[in-house]
Nucleic acid binder design. Structure first.
Lengths: 244, 244
DNA sequence: GAGTGGTCTAGACCACCCT
DNA sequence: GGGTGGTCTAGACCACTCC
């Protein structure tokens, strides 16, 4: 099943499974420019014939390659090698508590304050409608072995999630509470870098001006309503590692 | 095909396609805790019977849900709802030039220096074997409308990629050259934040101490040999946006 | 209109792994 | 041993879109 036209077993292939084997060979041909960038691949039937397998096996393989961003497929248009292949990576958005405990550190959490307020312009800009009402605002610190790890500054739209008003955020972080109680659907993540302001420095026990890693996340319901906007300020030295 | 036991068409479902419809319903049941975290799902045959479709359709749907990280599947063990579903996100690792041009800015590139040297300890630590030979070191700046955008500080293992010695990096950035000439396979990406050092500030026309967004990338061949280590220092104000 | 990929089906065999 | 998911097959129909 891993043979080519020659009938010899491919010595390169690592997987004997079938569609994964086809996938490997396809990727190899793209990388080695047997199939050049921008060019058209043979159709599924022809590839299936060449590999001596069913069309659906080839289909599975090509869909996987397409998911990786190496090829584009169109009905009638055929399958084409992408010109500028962007590397795609998938990573997990970490749950703070797990992230800390995975490093064998003791997780801690302390609420700084909760209040209802009209969000500042910087937050309102990212909300779909203009918020003139007061919504829930929470500030809290997550600690690892007692040391500040990340500062959580969160706005929850209580018009969308009224039950948040009854939650006890002194015992459970809003991060955790939302994950366990509100179905997520999608959103946006923005990573950036900022110098610590006085308030940040105080909460994170670092110096004013220190470079902080910032993750700002917007979370939506399935109906595209904004649940929450959170700004996570990680203490200096934090790294986010992603396998490619 | 989108019916439940009731026989009524699901009003919620948006996709009529088949496996995507099954997928939606499965996700809905997980989110609404019809199938609770940690619990076992019915086996594929039973689900197929309930939905009135073939097992392979259910298989396709469940594999997709598993890819999203909501369920775990084991042979004989069955399919289980993951206890702490981590949000998984996929994003594109940007090609610098494209990234700039997509914002309708004029891309520019200027080489600072190339040389052969023994990498410093911080870089050697991340290489698999201990490098005692001199390898290729390149520093360059990418600009947007003439303003520094990102500082590229790269080490290329010329024992793995000897052809890099012949490349002309004054005309083409190593970023681009590698993408176009060397097949990638995998690696690691680390995102972090650092205060600008004097050399960084000079190259990026910013102030010493400014918070810089750092992306450090290790790239490997299919044989797990290290091709290159690059450290990208983005100018202040940079944001990396990811859709979830 | 016609060729392509997208999907579904019914059946089959196998690898894994829990009990 | 037996139940589960993983995969393959051969055939079929459909949706899209290029020509």
């Amino acid at each position: 099943m891993c043979d080519e036209k020659t009938g010899r077993e491919s010595l390169i292939s690592k997987a004997k499974n079938g569609w994964q084997c086809v996938q490997e060979e396809v990727i190899r041909r793209i990388q080695t420019r047997v199939w050049e960038p921008g060019s058209l691949l043979p159709n599924e039937v022809d590839i299936a014939t060449e590999f001596g397998c069913a069309r659906s096996t080839v289909n599975r393989a090509l869909q996987a390659v397409a998911d990786k961003g190496l090829i584009e497929r169109k009905r009638k248009g055929g399958t084409r090698v992408v010109i500028h292949p962007e590397h795609k990576a998938t990573f997990n958005i970490p749950i703070i508590r797990q992230q800390i405990e995975q490093q064998d550190l003791e997780y801690g959490y302390s609420l700084i304050k909760t209040r209802h307020a009209i969000p500042p312009a910087a937050v309102r800009d990212r909300l779909p409608d203009d918020v003139s009402e007061e919504i829930l605002h929470i500030r809290a610190v997550h600690t690892a072995d007692g040391l500040p790890y990340v500062l959580e500054d969160r706005w929850i739209d209580t018009r969308v999630v009224p039950s948040a008003d009854e939650a006890d955020f002194s015992a459970q972080s809003p991060n955790q509470w939302l994950l366990e109680n509100i179905p997520y659907s999608g959103g946006t993540l923005r990573l950036s870098s900022e110098n610590a302001k006085a308030a940040d420095a105080k909460a994170l026990s670092c110096d004013v001006g220190d470079a902080l890693f910032i993750a700002e996340r917007l979370t939506l319901t399935a109906e595209r309503e904004t649940i929450t906007i959170v700004r996570l300020c990680y203490a200096p030295g934090y790294q986010m590692a992603i396998e490619l």
